[in-house]
Simulated assay, not measured.
Amino acid sequence: MKIKSSEFIISAVGPKQYPVDGLPEIALAGRSNVGKSSLINRLLLRRNLARTSSQPGKTQQLNYYKINEEMYFVDVPGYGYAKVSKSEREAWGRMIENYLREREELKLVIQLIDLRHPPTALDISMYEWLSHYGIPLCVVGTKADKLSRNQVAKHGRIMRDTLGMPKGAPLVLFSSETGEGRDDLWRIIAHAADIPAASPPESQHERQETEDNG
């Protein structure tokens, strides 16, 4: 995917703040500290477009990023952070559930799970909830660079089995450090958003220019 432009648009807390241009939206969901911001930055070849918070669970809104004037990434608040109050968790839960179930522009949810560990009960619940409502879903195992090649394959199988993923369901093993899985994930995103994905690979020079301009 050739990244021509990427920018932060808005932190939305409800439908009145969502963009109204009708562009397809790709949501990213996962536990706090699973690497959503790092994944967004790697996909877009930007260093700090999506900020990594020093306080897990701090993100309380849906953060919208517009890419190439043709689609949005939507960073969903991380789930499972204990220091967030019960009332806040309930409010976030209602906001997220309403967005995921009712937003017509939503074309795909990318569920991020730390590949180093088996999916948690919360990861399983999120996967089952999304599957139950028929929401298009792609699972991404993050931090693949922290494992050996043999471990990556093994942990990928564990993730599939633990989640009960049907045969053929998309699972991308991803590293924000090395870029492993980036091209595969972009193909899935482009297909879901119905945008062209057959751009030639970016050269190292183009990649550096993108980062420098960010």
Rank of each mutant, 00 (worst) to 15 (best):
E104A: 11
L137V: 10
V139S: 11
K66C: 03
L43R: 08
G30F: 01
P118D: 04
G93Y: 14
E69S: 13
T52N: 09
L23M: 13
S54I: 08
V13W: 09
E70T: 02
Y64H: 02
L39V: 06
T52C: 09
R51A: 10
L23R: 11
Y79W: 12
K107V: 04
S87Y: 07
P24Y: 07
P24F: 01
L137K: 01
I135E: 06
P56N: 03
K86S: 05
L49T: 02
Y64V: 03
I26N: 01
N41S: 14
Q55T: 14
I26Q: 02
G78N: 00
Y99D: 08
D114K: 01
S32Q: 01
L106C: 05
P136R: 05
L28Q: 06
S131V: 13
E88G: 03
W92T: 12
M126E: 00
E25P: 01
R31Y: 09
H117A: 15
E25N: 08
P19C: 13
T120F: 02
W129K: 13
I135R: 14
P136M: 06
L137T: 00
E69G: 09
N33D: 12
L122R: 06
N33I: 07
R46I: 06
I110E: 01
R94M: 13
E69D: 13
L108E: 04
V84S: 14
R31D: 02
R47H: 01
N41G: 05
P24C: 12
K16Q: 08
R116C: 00
N98Y: 14
S5Q: 15
E90M: 13
G57E: 11
Q55A: 15
A12M: 01
I26P: 02
H117E: 11
G93D: 13
T120V: 09
R51N: 12
Q17T: 10
Y65R: 03
T52G: 10
P19T: 09
W92M: 09
N68M: 09
A121Q: 15
M95E: 05
D21A: 11
K83H: 14
S38N: 01
R46N: 12
I124A: 07
K16C: 05
L100W: 04
S5D: 11
L23T: 04
P24H: 01
G93Q: 15
Q55P: 09
W92I: 11
I67R: 04
I40Y: 06
S85P: 05
S131W: 08
